[in-house]
Nucleic acid binder design. Sequence first.
DNA 1: GGGTTAAAGGTGG
DNA 2: TTCCACCACCTTTAACCC
Length: 664
Amino acid sequence: MDEGESSSTNNPSRPWESYNTVFTNAKAGMEGVDKEKVQRVVYEMSKGSKYFQNEERKEALMKQKIEHMRDRCAKLSSSDLSNYQKVVDRRILEVEATRDLSRVWLHVDMDAFYAAVETLSNPSLKGKPMAVGGLSMISTANYEARKFGVRAAMPGFIARKLCPDLIFVPVDFPKYTHYSDLTRKVFKNYDPNFIAGSLDEAYLDITEVCRERGLSGGEIAEELRSSVHSETGGLTCSAGVAANRLLAKVCSDINKPNGQFVLQNDRSTVMTFISSLPIRKIGGIGKVTEHILKDALEIKTCGDMVLKGSLLYALFTQSSADFFLSVGLGLGKTDTPEVRSRKSISSERTFAATGDEKLLYSKLAEIAEMLSHDMQKERLAARTLTLKLKTASFEIRSRAVSLQRYTCSSEDILKHATKLLKAELPVSIRLIGLRMSQFNEEARHSDPSQGTITKFIVQKGSSRKNLDDNDSSDLDASKNCLGNDEMLSLSYASHETSYDQLKDVVEYEEQSVTPNQECKKKEERIQVLEGDALLRKHKDCKADSSAEKTEAVSVLPQMEPLVWVDGYRCNLCGIELPPSFVEERQEHSDFHLAQRLQNEESGPSSSNTPTSKRRSASQILGKEKANSKPKKQKPNQKDGSKHIPIHTFFTKSNQNSNDETQKK
DNA sequence: GGGTTAAAGGTGG
DNA sequence: TTCCACCACCTTTAACCC
């Protein structure tokens, strides 16, 4: 079975041959598949679509990357190469010293897990081609369906074309979790600290079990697989046994389904095995990396990675090159890692592409709600929010903001997400996602009774009665969602950015805002347009102590208190906010507090400022400085820059970052 | 120079 | 007739702050 990849030949009469789909890659159960037919069908069903165009765009990008790498390769002198070879030789000595052949690792992978579970609960599906998922996307397919070229991550409508009799079964996560738990009970008997990769796979360190029971890794694997089969009522799995996790994973794929493969723990066996292994078999090397290594450096097998080590160290970052080299030597992790906790939590939804802003905001609200719900369920609070958008043309954008306060409330999430989204409009969108990261570790690691911390944060988030340092800086960050990035880009796009330009932005921003937003906009506009003038006004303002309704901010004793003159006008800057605008008023007073801190920071007495205060002040400054002082910017943006000033989005620029991502 | 943040991309299940 | 997910992790690059 020669992988005679004709994909790089450009035969006009067979255009599908150059369409690089992942669906023709070798996968367990797909050996007899007519690859060319699959590729043709996928091509026919895809061509011309927005998705297809985006794929072509990405393809072109990759080719550029490869060209660039070839160029750099050609420029390497022989003395460069011999120097890099010395680096390689040294690294080989170093990593060889860490080689540990004393452990026995087992990788278990359930066979077509979701599909197998569905068949177990509905035996009439047995022997029929079936896929779990829907017309838009398939999660997994059984082996009968795979014979037709149907596979995981394939759109359902293409799968149906490949296999008209395909039966679709909707995804049922609770069911899979139940069966996954059954398998994990078995795993625990062999390694209580096993590493669960996902619902359907796990790594087990079976060194001790083998020793205690005087059994080989292969015998333990046999026993475990049979145990899984009986405990689940008929599910099969495959296993790989080797000296480290990387190799074990490769091995579990070799005799799939319902099989196993053992790689002996001695160096020469490992080296023989790895040297001819295609690089794509390695976890972490996907379509793009494979192409780059193959087409730019002619690295096809793991063994090539060692042979061409000097090129790898010359062209890739140290960490990438280190990874490639260790792969080439058959090295992998052998330790049992510390308990790993999640780093982020997210929610995203795809829908029919739309530019209708009302609809988009309501989708955003739904997603914020879902995310908040998930976070509360897991008792998580986080402070970095990332908005992900997929445009109608499948371009992915992400925009992030870090808050000064941990939160999980849907109100907080939505508030900041709305600002991020607003800056992107107008645009036609087919997917919105929200992700929260940078968790509050203390809250997470506290005992369950401490769940109240989260509750406290939620409550605090939804009704912001307290004013503390954090709140004020949080407010500041949120306030600057519009102002900050924008000021940043505007200020370095041209130091004498004209008033007109600013006005354009503001005017644009003013379209379709609710009265509530209108007030905020006004406030932001003051910030944007008046900058220092605000401070001047601040000075000139007179406090009307006789005002009926007053709200004094007493955090800093020497601060002139903010008073709502006549119950609605700020004595410091004159902005008008009715009493019912509780949150806006809170934000507004926070804003003045931030201003106050900023003044103090830049004043002569700053050296006396207590650390805590100074820290929060400088955090604020991080955002605020943009308003008063242009950020430093290199005189001419080199081509390698990835930064896309936010204002380019306001000018409806179609240009994406295509041309800048090549540099590596 | 190291740490942080933002944006983008790759990978795998 | 149309139709290409959702989630989490990691790395890289750039800009900026301390």
